[in-house]
């Protein structure tokens, strides 16, 4: 669900036209759409780099973790998931709200990683490392758009 769908849904529930605060919110969303697009293009083009550098930073802080125990298959799987989270953040940047991340990647996430035996505390550090690498590649305007979704991701773990 995008910010547009959200404004429509809440207006519909109240049987009214979108209010002026909501319309201002949409106007702001459209005003910085070119930064949204460029942020997403940079995240897409640099996903591998973000994951690789993020992993190095993560393992430096947290060496004893499933992705760093010499099992190449497990490392690949962990890094694949990290790449997916970058993609979900990119959807949020386009949508203007966190619903894509919440619906696709956070709902049920804890149960999944607990069942896989991946420590959530370690993942939290890993996500923080992805965030710092990713935001370093973005302009300040782009980083301001993507940052809150990375923050939400870190908080969720």
């Amino acid at each position: 669900m995008s910010i547009i769908a959200k404004v429509i849904a809440q207006s519909d529930r109240a049987d009214r036209f979108p209010g002026s605060a909501e319309l201002t919110q949409l106007q702001d969303y459209f005003n910085n759409s070119s930064a949204r697009i460029s942020a997403v293009q940079k995240l897409a083009a640099n996903q591998q780099k973000i994951v690789d550098e993020g992993s190095q930073r993560f393992w430096a802080q947290c060496p004893n973790t499933p992705s760093n125990r010499g099992d190449a298959q497990k490392t690949a799987l962990c890094q694949r998931d990290q790449g997916w989270y970058i993609r979900l953040v990119s959807y949020c940047v386009l949508a203007g709200n966190a619903k894509p991340l919440e619906d696709i990647g956070l709902d049920g996430m804890r149960d999944m990683y607990v069942s896989l035996g991946v420590p959530l505390a370690n993942l939290k550090i890993a996500m923080g490392c992805l965030k710092s690498v990713a935001l370093g590649l973005l302009s300040s305007e782009e980083a301001a758009l993507a940052g809150p979704y990375f923050d939400q991701l870190v908080r969720a773990f």
Binding site: Q47, W84, S90, Y91, L94
Partner: peptide, 20 residues
């Protein structure tokens, strides 16, 4: 309900792709 943005994101996610 669907909107243009969601209608573009959902099929990209089905394939694991970025929107590009």
């Amino acid at each position: 309900m669907q909107d243009t943005v969601t209608a573009i994101i959902n099929p990209a996610d089905e394939k694991g792709n970025y929107v590009e």
